[in-house]
Design a protein around this nucleic acid. Structure first.
Lengths: 217, 217
DNA sequence: TAGATTGTTAATCGATTAACAATC
DNA sequence: TAGATTGTTAATCGATTAACAATC
């Protein structure tokens, strides 16, 4: 019955997904502030985008607003978190218990958004058996094995990246957050997001001097 | 004299800068492997882009190749690192000496690319005076003061982000790597790169289920 | 010279934005 | 109803890619 013409589900652009995560954060804030309804103008401003961008982004997933009024915050928040799957917990496997891995294991933002690190693996015997955040570090040699993990985080040294990534994939992980500088080619079955710190700093280094040039001639 | 028609320096697209950092890494690898000359086809393949993309990206900065031959690796590496300012050291100020900040302070990738963390600040008296990687943690209340830092890294709790960012800006930092989830509006004088871990995980969560849907109907 | 590969132009593609009819 | 704001279409913008003349 009145179901809207599905298969408007044309391919969703990647930038739209990324912005959806931003909208989610804004909506959570509005919810906290007990705001009942928000206009596209207002939320777009908070998210740092154009109002038409916001409406267009939502339009890939359906209709969520009331003409002449705006968007009911609780309802939209529920819908966006459902789209991003943030309405359910996600089991995360972490590879690498060095400085970075340890920091990530304790990162408060993760649990707040429903991401639970349930496994930590490390290649070094010195690390294996230690507890980090109530999780006992296992040996990497215990992989691959079926984990039932939704996401994987790669925080091993760059040289170990390829092998470690493959262990996760062979353990059934289909989405990977990669902190090693390495480029991973894992096929279309696996989504990879790269966080490359030196890459970011290189881009900043370029801009820092560009800005200085703009100041002194 | 024979200087090529400058002011081809039209605005350089942001994605180009980001890819330049990738090319830099590839070139460093080729250099290590003693490769003397590389074609756009070969290096583009390694960087995961189209050959024409690579050539177009370079064209914003000049001509670096030899027709019929390819690009001399050592020369191109020098030029790219000069464009990205990676041929000189960068002084970095770090705000936040928690788990993440501490991990970043010890990150081996930074020093290898010429980024030197020279200052660490933290608000907590418990942290002040401690040494991390041979650097004594100073109190945030010692800021703002002119640092002569090129880059800043923000690794404080999200709630402290805005204030901490302003301290760095008031200390003369014009380029900022922001690990807090907060959106910073610091004006056009300051470049900000955001690394938002929960944001990345949210995008991955979406893709992970998309992929599962693709497998089971 | 013949073959290869660059640098650049023009065509294509996709994402952003403005505009507006639909409608609460 | 009049005013406001959505959802969507069409126009704009910018980035990617293909094609090719220049030239080593």
């Amino acid at each position: 019955m009145g179901r809207p013409p599905m298969e408007k589900r044309s391919r969703v652009p990647e930038p739209t997904i990324s912005r959806l995560a931003t909208y989610f954060r804004c909506l959570a804030e509005l919810q906290d502030q007990q705001v009942a309804v928000v206009s596209s103008e207002e939320i777009a401003f908070r998210a740092g985008v154009k109002a038409s961008q916001f409406r267009k982004d939502l339009s890939y997933f359906g209709e969520f607003g009331v003409q002449g009024l705006g968007y009911p915050v609780p309802h939209l928040l529920r819908r966006v978190s459902s789209i991003l799957q943030l309405d359910q917990a996600h089991k995360v496997a972490l590879l690498g218990a060095g400085n970075l891995g340890t920091a990530l294991a304790g990162f408060p933002g993760f649990s707040r958004w429903g991401f639970q690190i349930l496994w930590i693996f490390d290649a070094s015997p010195a690390k294996v058996g230690q507890s980090i955040n109530q999780i006992v570090v296992e040996s990497s040699s215990a992989l691959p094995r079926p984990l039932g993990a939704d996401l994987g985080i790669l925080a091993v040294p760059t040289q170990a990246a390829r092998e470690a990534a493959q262990l996760l994939v062979d353990s059934g992980v289909t989405a990977l957050l990669n902190f090693t500088g390495a480029h991973l080619h894992l096929g279309p079955q696996v989504t990879v997001r790269n966080v490359d710190l030196t890459h970011e700093l290189a881009v900043l280094a370029y801009h820092a001097t560009q800005l200085q040039k703009a100041v002194d001639p």
